[in-house]
């Protein structure tokens, strides 16, 4: 059974909201989401897990209006869908979102929420695992 995300989330993420950067273009192409970031002139092809997350967050953000989708809800949905406990879900999702934010594909409000919570973009030195472990304990 999955713990609710907010039980274990760093405080900085509890009020965070996310949405696709309005400047990007994106499409679900044959089951994989492709995101174009015109300002960076980059194209990101998300893997199936990332594609699932993008679909959910873009839909939730659309429903939520200009503010964006609540991050804790996104983490809960992700954990429930993939059968992950909240800490593991938070680590995976937060690193992914941090990467997309860094690439200009995603807007997170407050903008430094992920970093404040210790989540760095994938591939960048960060304290994500340690932070999750700490929270989990």
């Amino acid at each position: 059974m999955n713990a609710h995300a907010s039980d274990t989330l760093p405080g900085a993420l509890l009020a965070a909201v996310v949405r696709p950067n309005p400047r990007v273009a994106f499409r679900d192409i044959a089951g994989q989401v492709v995101v174009v970031v015109p300002d960076a002139r980059k194209v990101h092809q998300l893997n199936p897990t990332g594609s699932w997350l993008w679909r959910v967050l873009s839909e939730e953000a659309r429903k939520a209006g200009p503010a964006g989708a609540p991050l804790p809800e996104l983490l809960r949905s992700f954990g429930a869908h993939f059968g992950l406990e909240a800490p593991a879900a938070a680590a995976d999702v937060a690193a992914f979102l941090a990467t997309l934010q860094q690439e200009g594909a995603l807007e997170v409000t407050p903008s430094d929420a992920l970093r404040q919570a210790g989540y760095a973009p994938a591939g960048e030195p960060g304290a994500a695992e340690a932070e999750v472990a700490e929270v989990a304990s």
Binding site: V34, V43, H44, L46, N47, F96, T99, E103, A122
Partner: peptide, 12 residues
């Protein structure tokens, strides 16, 4: 979860 590609040709 992401792979940065240089252009759509690469995507195809």
């Amino acid at each position: 979860m992401t792979e940065v590609l240089s252009d759509l040709r690469a995507f195809k």
